[in-house]
Design a protein around this nucleic acid. Structure first.
Ligand SMILES: [Zn+2]
Ligand SMILES: [Zn+2]
Ligand SMILES: [Zn+2]
Ligand SMILES: [Zn+2]
Lengths: 168, 168
DNA sequence: GGCTGATACGCTACAATATAGCGATCGAGG
DNA sequence: CCTCGATCGCTATATTGTAGCGTATCAGCC
């Protein structure tokens, strides 16, 4: 199966389909209501592998004939966050689909400043180091935010600072 | 010398004095202009060990007879960020004084959700794990955001969920 | 001292992000 | 059908952050 975490060229339609199907399954198992609106918002978040702002979602929602206002989008996003289907990127005030939503978790993100792609990783070493450091300070950790800005493999390799073309 | 990173009871006036004195030294060495306004904003950021919002700073600035507007504060904060004298807490849209500004760095923060205190740590293990994980993904890291929400030693110990009294 | 260019600042207006609150609607269960 | 709670549409407002422009201030130089 294709790796949904990759920013390389791939059949992104499959990413979206898989994410929506998995969301349906997860919500069904939990008895959570993945309504048409929430499903549509999740689909819009999955439009690309770049974090998307709430107001971007809002404007795209309006395009389908339905009316929409900020609370509509924020409430849907709140639900998706609670269910672990999306993550919030704090340093960008934006949202991105979770690559592995079955077990809710705090995400670790690599954010390319050239092409805008966000890559979610789940590195046990980082998590372990963080828990250890927190323990030394007598701190009981809850939600963890890890966001690294830099250049992805594609944008760092070859022509150093030149972003590659991609769909927005 | 007192540990400016600690949230325990301490002579906080010393924290502020030390931070301002160190800022003066650093800016002098670099030929950067720590103007009266920037110094005042830095002092306000150091008012406590809780991250402070730009508009909080703004309202406190207005109290001293001078006029102030958002750009005034944001420009001062931009300077202080460039000089590494303050950090921005992304998950709170707020700012906090840097505990060790001599060598600019990306901060690692423990944010207590009960008492609001932010503790800056500089754990080499976390940094190493992060660089390693980024390398595996072919990612060239730049600025790193690490923010852990949870309960500090004080708020976690004893009465588990009961925040201790503190000045705001 | 006085000139000059660059930096810093005051100020108005505005943009972008997020929430409060209220009534209408929908949907599961009795 | 009826009821209750969850969801949604909608208006208004709160919070956070920038653009742009003219003035003031400062360092370096004549
Ligand atoms: Zn994809
Ligand atoms: Zn890239
Ligand atoms: Zn202190
Ligand atoms: Zn605490």
């Amino acid at each position: 199966m294709p790796d949904r975490r990759s920013a390389d060229d791939h059949d992104h339609a499959t990413c979206i389909e898989d994410a929506l199907a998995e969301a349906e399954t997860i919500c069904a198992e939990r008895g959570a209501r993945l309504t048409e609106l929430r499903r549509r918002v999740l689909e819009l978040v999955w439009t690309s592998h770049e974090p998307v702002g709430a107001y971007d979602i809002l404007s795209r929602l309006g395009g389908d004939g339905r009316r929409a206002a900020p609370p509509t989008v924020y409430r849907a996003l709140e639900f998706l966050l609670e269910q672990g289907l999306v993550h919030r990127i704090e340093s960008l005030n934006a949202f991105i689909g979770c690559a592995s939503p079955k077990a809710p978790h705090s995400g670790q993100f690599l954010l390319c400043t050239a092409c805008g792609t966000a890559t979610e990783i789940a590195d046990a070493g980082i998590q372990a180091a963080l828990v250890k450091a927190a323990g030394l300070a007598g701190f009981r950790p809850g939600h963890v935010t890890i966001e690294v800005k830099g250049l992805c493999r594609r944008c760092a390799g070859g022509a150093a600072a030149e972003p590659h073309a991609h769909a927005h």
